[in-house]
């Protein structure tokens, strides 16, 4: 291991650890909503660690600036896709598994009771976008 470089390999190891736990979480957590916690949070930091290690390995200014841009977009887009998946699942009527016998565990959104309200809001948003000519109607 004479070519081990802490500054280069440590971020990659830490990143790989988080990506691994993300995979384990996705398999072990009970439902889609819980799994999103693993796939959004852990993958964000995990890939950030791997990117950082790669940038150190390349040891090039351009690699660091691209890394910054990539991280920026990752922080912007990962939550967005998690949000879309969660909301789509809820609106399609996938009930979340609630509680595990201790405290809390409620669905304050109302057991899909307000899904209609959200679906209505989505239709409204689509109508506004269509009026602006940004999407095709229907």
């Amino acid at each position: 291991m004479d070519d081990f470089q802490a500054v280069r390999d440590l971020p990659i190891l830490i990143g790989a650890f988080f990506v691994l736990t993300a995979a384990i979480g996705v398999v072990r957590f009970p439902d889609l909503y819980s799994r999103l916690h693993a796939s959004s949070k852990l993958v964000t930091l995990g890939s950030a660690g791997i990117f950082l290690g790669v940038a150190f390995a390349l040891n090039d200014a351009a690699a660091f600036t691209r890394l910054a841009a990539v991280l920026l977009f990752q922080f912007l887009t990962t939550p967005l896709s998690a949000y879309l998946i969660a909301q789509a699942a809820y609106l399609r009527g996938l009930p979340p598994i609630l509680g595990d016998g201790q405290g809390g565990g409620t669905d304050e959104w109302g057991a899909l009771g307000r899904a209609d309200e959200v679906a209505q809001a989505d239709r409204e948003a689509l109508r506004v976008l269509a009026e602006e000519g940004l999407v095709d109607e229907g």
Binding site: S34, G99, T106
Partner: peptide, 12 residues
């Protein structure tokens, strides 16, 4: 994710 029996206590 790693704990043998995690206390998730999921809710909305």
């Amino acid at each position: 994710a790693l704990r043998p029996r995690p206390r998730l206590n999921p809710m909305i």
